Simulated assay, not measured.
Amino acid sequence: MKPRSMNDEENGRPPDPVDWAVIDVVDYFRTVGFAEQAIAFQEQEIDGKSLLLMTRNDVLTGLSLKLGPALKIYEYHVKPLQTRHLKNNSS
């Protein structure tokens, strides 16, 4: 059995968030310590494509999260995922 490469999947998720299903987004936020807030992503059916399109305002107001966690989610997770996706897909 061939070991899975980190390029194939990261923690069971495709490496590029654009390919994530809603459950992958939810699992990601659970894994990084936002289990309570992950429910909002599930309720709003945020998949990877939607996640990459989210603005700061979407995260702060659209998900009905407390301000503190919402700021951290956007600054430390959504924004870096968007930046990495753009960097990896610009040629």
Rank of each mutant, 00 (worst) to 15 (best):
S5E: 12
F41P: 03
A38I: 14
K79H: 13
T61W: 01
K66G: 13
D16S: 14
N57F: 13
Q42V: 04
N11V: 01
L51Q: 00
N57L: 13
E36K: 05
V22H: 10
N7G: 03
S91F: 15
P3W: 00
S91L: 15
M54A: 09
Q44H: 13
A21R: 13
L71T: 15
K66L: 14
D58G: 11
P69E: 03
E43G: 00
S91V: 14
E9F: 14
N88G: 05
L63T: 12
S90I: 14
P17R: 04
L63M: 10
Y28W: 02
L52I: 06
A35F: 03
H77Q: 09
V25Y: 01
P15E: 08
Y76I: 09
Q42N: 14
F34M: 00
P14K: 09
K87P: 02
M54R: 04
L52P: 06
A38R: 02
A40H: 06
G62C: 00
R84S: 12
R56M: 14
L52V: 05
W20R: 08
S5K: 12
P3F: 02
V78S: 07
S5C: 14
G68H: 04
K79V: 01
T61N: 09
L67D: 11
L67T: 15
T61A: 00
A38Y: 07
W20Y: 13
S64N: 10
R84E: 12
L86H: 10
A38Q: 09
M6N: 10
P17M: 06
K2Y: 00
Y28I: 02
P15R: 06
T55H: 13
R56P: 01
K49N: 13
I23M: 07
N7A: 11
Y28D: 00
L86I: 05
D27W: 05
E10Q: 10
G62A: 01
P80A: 10
M1E: 01
Q44C: 09
I23E: 12
L53A: 15
E75G: 03
L51R: 00
E45V: 09
H85A: 13
N7R: 08
S90Q: 12
L60F: 02
S91H: 15
A70I: 12
A35G: 00
L71I: 15
L60P: 08
I23S: 11
A35T: 11
G12D: 06
I46E: 09
K72W: 13
L86V: 03
E36N: 09
K87I: 10
I46L: 11
P14N: 07
P3T: 06
R4K: 09
Q44E: 13
D58L: 07
Q44Y: 09
L52D: 09
P80W: 10
D24M: 05
K72D: 15
E75R: 05
Y74P: 04
R84Y: 09
K66Q: 13
G62Q: 03
P80G: 07
D24L: 06
Y76R: 09
M6C: 03
F34T: 04
L86T: 11
M6W: 04
Y28N: 02
L86A: 12
K79T: 07
L65D: 06
V32K: 01
V59S: 08
L71N: 15
